[in-house]
């Protein structure tokens, strides 16, 4: 058999499209960072000097760092139930997680906004049951933004976690119990480490997705929660400043790339391709 077969031609359409309609344009945008309005590093100097840019980049990192653990902690029990519950329960849970996953982000975000309104469902509920006297400010601030992100990102962590948990051999836990380990200790010492690849994968996916969010901060966040994607949009649409937009994109891509590289080093990227 020949070393390279003719099937390689089947790759041509996809790679051609990817190059012309994705890699090329993205490369062009990133190049703007060094060429617009004139060649040099002035755009990066600007990022460094203007407090607004630094603040927004810091904000974005901070928000991703807060969202990630919340999503993992909430996703964990669901994945656990999915992996170790009955087949019937699993089907229901899969359905439960998939349905919103397939509904547009935009729809879910504005629906969340309605829930979080000052006199919305959640506040009415809390007041009705006497937990609070005054409605809580839940919308157009950090709370609103977090609620939106967590809600949308849960499936990203549930599925990798589930796949890690489903692979854990129940005999291992039995063995730990037989050897006299109390259940909690067996869970922490034996079970938890085995779920770590799933946790890492899910957490990374959540973190990098949050870094690039635009719709959720625009609809649910306040003036203080501006994120990098909004800033890029502003730079292009409002100021026509392709240079700064390119520089911001480059920073955002680098952050994403570094996180993925870390994941590759620790877990291996194959985990992600589901």
């Amino acid at each position: 058999m020949r070393p390279i077969d003719r099937r390689i031609w089947l790759l041509l359409p996809a790679t051609l499209l990817l190059t012309v309609a994705f890699l090329g344009p993205v490369g062009w945008l990133l190049a703007r960072a060094f060429t617009f309005p004139q060649p040099g590093f002035q755009n990066f100097e600007l990022l460094w000097q203007r407090p607004v840019y630094l603040r927004v980049m810091g904000n974005t990192l901070l928000i991703s760092a807060i969202v990630t653990p919340i999503v993992v902690l909430l996703g964990f029990p669901v994945a656990h139930m999915m992996a170790h519950g009955s087949a019937r329960l699993r089907r229901w849970l899969v359905f439960l997680v998939l349905v919103p996953f397939w509904t547009s982000l935009l729809v879910r975000s504005f629906a969340t906004a309605i829930l979080l309104q000052r006199h919305g469902v959640i506040n009415s509920f809390l007041i009705g049951f006497g937990f609070i006297d005054e409605p809580l400010p839940l919308l157009y601030n950090l709370t609103g933004l977090l609620a939106g992100c967590v809600q949308v990102l849960l499936p990203f962590v549930i599925f990798p976690l589930y796949s890690a948990m489903a692979r854990i051999d129940p005999a291992l836990m039995k063995a730990a119990a037989t050897l006299g380990a109390p259940p909690l200790r067996a869970f922490v010492r034996v079970y938890l480490p085995l779920t770590l690849p799933g946790v890492m994968t899910g957490a990374t996916l959540v973190f990098i997705s949050t870094l690039g969010y635009y719709i959720i901060p625009a609809l649910l966040g306040g003036a203080r929660q501006q994120m990098v994607a909004q800033l890029i949009q502003d730079q292009i649409a409002t100021f026509g400043n392709w240079g700064v937009a390119g520089a911001l994109s480059l920073v955002l891509l680098l952050a994403t790339g570094v996180l993925l590289a870390l994941l590759q080093l620790t877990v291996g990227l194959k985990e992600i391709a589901r």
Binding site: T15, A21, F22, P25, V26, G212, A229, W242, A273
Partner: peptide, 23 residues
């Protein structure tokens, strides 16, 4: 090549959008 083909999901939508709009 597989990794490159996955890039459009990894790269934030705003970057892809701005790039396509520009080109």
């Amino acid at each position: 090549i597989m990794a490159c083909l996955m890039l459009p999901i990894v790269v934030p939508g705003m970057i892809t959008a701005a790039a396509l709009f520009g080109v």
